[in-house]
Amino acid sequence: MFNYSVATNYYIMKLQKKQEERLQKMIEEEEIRMLRKEMVPKAQLMPFFDRPFLPQRSSRPLTMPKEPSFGNVHSTCWTCVFNNQHYLYHINHAHA
């Protein structure tokens, strides 16, 4: 009886494994089919050889770089930023 139950369980596991493999194969085939539909080559427009593309210069004024301003360093007190939870500290705190 024991041998029969072991053989039955083995056979059932084998069938389940085959079923899972079959299902996995069907899913993969469907994915491949969908990818092939998406990857259909599409025709590209031919370039105009008689009128080549020449980029035009922008009419906007050039951007001029600004000098950095280091005089505004103390506008944010980092001790205040890190001690944000201490409200009384902010009231009595004097910035140097």
Rank of each mutant, 00 (worst) to 15 (best):
I12E: 00
N9M: 13
E31P: 00
F49I: 03
E20S: 09
Q24A: 10
E29I: 05
Y10N: 12
E29V: 03
F48L: 15
K42T: 06
L45Q: 12
E31D: 07
L54M: 13
K25G: 04
Q44V: 10
L45Y: 08
I12N: 03
E29T: 04
V40L: 05
A43E: 13
E31C: 08
R51P: 03
P41G: 01
F53H: 14
I32G: 00
M34G: 00
V40Q: 06
P41V: 05
L54A: 10
F53A: 09
Y11W: 13
F48P: 06
M34F: 05
R33M: 05
M39F: 10
L54S: 09
E20F: 03
E20R: 12
Q44T: 11
E28Q: 06
Y10V: 13
T8Q: 15
Y10D: 13
T8S: 15
T8K: 15
I32C: 03
I27P: 00
F48I: 10
M34A: 08
N9F: 12
Q44I: 11
P55M: 06
L15D: 05
M46I: 12
M34Y: 04
K18G: 08
R22V: 08
Q44S: 08
E28V: 01
D50Q: 08
E28G: 01
M26Q: 12
E29Q: 11
L54I: 11
K37E: 15
P52T: 01
E28I: 02
E21M: 13
L54N: 10
Q16D: 11
P41E: 05
V40C: 00
L54W: 07
L23R: 15
K37Y: 13
L35Y: 09
L23E: 11
Q16I: 12
Y10L: 14
P52V: 05
I32N: 05
Q16M: 14
L35F: 02
Q44Y: 10
I27R: 04
I32T: 07
P55A: 04
M39K: 12
M34W: 03
N9V: 13
